[in-house]
């Protein structure tokens, strides 16, 4: 597995807010190769956005990397939190507040490309035009001359994607690109991102809560729950054959339109991000949990098949390795 672009080892990230410490990321390890696509899937509070921001070098000032390692392009960015900004482009979820209302799109492109080292204005405009065309704009001149408030939300999102791509990053990160929009817009965004992956050589990470869309966008998925990765592997395989109880229950709680069946909701709530947990973080809500084992010992993220890792005591090949007798 040499030639890995991004290697994360046992990463722990905390936030300090309102006098309390929130443990957002609790020991995440993963790898991303050149040109690979990865979806980080999780619900709110899973830590997925924090993880993405750490990779992008965009953690807010009140976040601390408590321990662990992030190696990007052979550079340890823990000592160099700003380094990723040159190599990683983050497309934020909030499109409205990302651009200054006082600058035209053309000016923004020039700004962004100048800091990337493209000082020739003609060259910069050429890049701007090609990326704007890539994201599907036909009237490029109009867009370049527009101010952010003159463009619709969907158009702004495409502009942000174009800006991100124009920086020729090694990794493109899209933060919830399909949230809160209607089906037809969702489809447009999904098709756009697929197109970008095909035409650009960048690796892509998509942070999303919508696990169902993951196979469209990425070849791999990592599912996060309460700050940890509970399962990762190839997207189509995970959706067809989920192994971790959380993944299984998550998929069963999504309504289908063709042959609907009874939804099974996951009971209870995710754990409080301020608390430290013993044992498996999903145990309180897991119908398969074994008392004495799952609540006491944290299951490691182990490789099950060559492409799948799962963090569950019940999914370790055929045997369940125990140190104590389960009370069954």
């Amino acid at each position: 597995m040499g030639g890995s672009l991004l290697t994360i080892k046992d990463l722990h990230i905390d936030y300090r807010a309102r006098g309390e410490t929130i443990r957002a990321v609790r020991g995440v390890s993963l790898e991303l190769g050149f040109g690979e696509t990865l979806c980080i899937v999780g619900e709110s509070g899973s830590g997925k956005t924090t993880l993405a921001m750490a990779i992008a070098g965009a953690l807010p000032p009140n976040a601390t990397i408590r321990s662990g390692e992030i190696v990007l392009n052979n550079v340890n960015i823990l000592n160099n939190r700003e380094y990723p900004r040159k190599l990683v482009s983050l497309i934020p979820q909030e499109v409205g507040s990302s651009l200054s209302p006082f600058h035209t799109i053309e000016q923004v492109f020039l700004d962004v490309l100048t800091s990337k080292g493209v000082t020739d204005k003609g060259e910069a405009l050429k890049i701007a035009r090609s990326t704007l065309s890539l994201v599907g704009f036909s009237d490029i001149n109009r867009v370049l001359k527009s101010y952010p408030h003159e463009l619709s939300g969907g158009m702004l999102q495409r502009v942000l994607i174009a800006l991100a791509v124009s920086r020729r990053p090694l990794i493109l990160i899209a933060d919830e690109p399909t949230s809160m929009i209607d089906a037809s817009l969702k489809r447009d965004v999904v098709e756009l991102l697929k197109n970008i992956v095909l035409t650009q050589s960048a690796s892509m990470i998509v942070v999303t809560h919508d696990i169902a869309l993951a196979p469209h966008l990425c070849s791999r998925i990592a599912i996060m729950y309460s700050g940890e990765i509970v399962e990762d592997g190839l997207s189509t395989e995970i959706l067809a054959n989920p192994m971790h109880p959380y993944t299984v229950m998550l998929l069963e709680s999504i309504p289908r339109i063709l042959s609907p069946r009874k939804l099974k909701a996951i009971p209870g709530l995710p754990p409080d991000p301020r608390s430290t947990l013993t044992g498996c973080s999903f145990e309180p809500r897991c119908p398969k949990a074994i008392k004495g084992l799952c609540d006491k010992i944290k299951p490691p993220l182990s490789t099950i098949e060559s492409t799948r890792r799962v963090s569950c005591h019940l999914v370790q090949g055929k045997e369940v390795t125990l140190n104590e007798d389960p009370s069954s």
Partner: peptide
């Protein structure tokens, strides 16, 4: 409405959803 949409807007809507969620629908 889902299996036999008549209006073009409805049809596009159902089509989009089936496209987006094909991996869930298949399970």
């Amino acid at each position: 409405i889902i299996n036999n949409p008549k209006n073009p807007y409805t049809r596009k809507l159902v089509e989009d959803v089936l496209y987006l969620y094909e991996f869930i629908e298949k399970r």
